[in-house]
Amino acid sequence: MAHISGMFLSVVGGAALVLGTAYGWTAREYRSAELDVLTERLVQLESSNAEWSKRAEATAELEAKLTALETELATAVQALEEARRAPVAAVAEPEAQPETIVADAGDPSFGDPARGETVFGQCRSCHQIGQGAEDRIGPHLNGIFGRRAGAHDGFRYSDDMAMMGADGLTWEIETLDAYLENPKALVSRTRMNFAGLKDQQDREDILAYLRQFSASPQNIPEAAPTAQAREVELAPEVLALVGDTDYGEYLASECKTCHQQDGSDQGIPSITQWPTEDFVVAMHAYKRQIRPHPVMQMMASRLSDEEIAALAAYFAQLQ
């Protein structure tokens, strides 16, 4: 920006110079000379503009390389840590637990934190947890229970994650469970590139493990049923429903009061041309009140499976 405004200043300076030296010129000659100077500057600006775009491309490339290197590094660090821990564990007492640990594991039927630690292995390449944990590719997970989504200072989240946080998504047992099961069900365009843990026991164990590093045991229910009741797992026949696009078009008229038909998204996200399954899963997550937005929960709450399918079919084919 500094560079560009500098150029503008010199354009103004050049025009002033012409005005000073050519005092006796006719107005037309002056205009023509001024035009020449401006044209020349314009050419210069355009070429400098092209230069900047090139640099921006190069920067993006470098950023991508950096991300790849970070992933590699994290994997290497994880391998090292595992190698370091293995022999120690055999001979020594378990390492001192972090301060935030909850001594009472609560209802033991909920999940096995020891097994959860093993399951968490697949998360470690991106997420750190425990004493000294820092943000890597993903944010560190100390104190995750009770934390507002997308709100950990200093970490750059996807727009969707930030929006869900602003809408009121907080990491509790139910929301973490839904997110781990299928990240996109909760946050459509999350940067977390992870297919999800389909096995309920895996999720319960990993949550029991994560919970040890959070200071909010009150977030943990006595037993699992609440969490189970609010899962977004959809029966295959619900996902397989083929929507009636005519009906979808009528139902969609209600959506278009806020979501624009041409896909523009000023303050309200675009919902056109989504993959049908993503759309259906997201709507069911609102309907079951796992996604937080009150308007969307209200709209989704009265839609049947067929109506959600109709909407998905209609919006998917919208040009």
Partner: peptide
């Protein structure tokens, strides 16, 4: 404050949406 700001931004989005509609 974050939620209130998001609500305001959403209202601007709604204005654009309904006037286009």
């Amino acid at each position: 404050a974050a939620m209130r700001k998001a609500t305001y931004e959403e209202s601007i989005g709604w204005y654009e949406g309904i006037t286009a509609d």
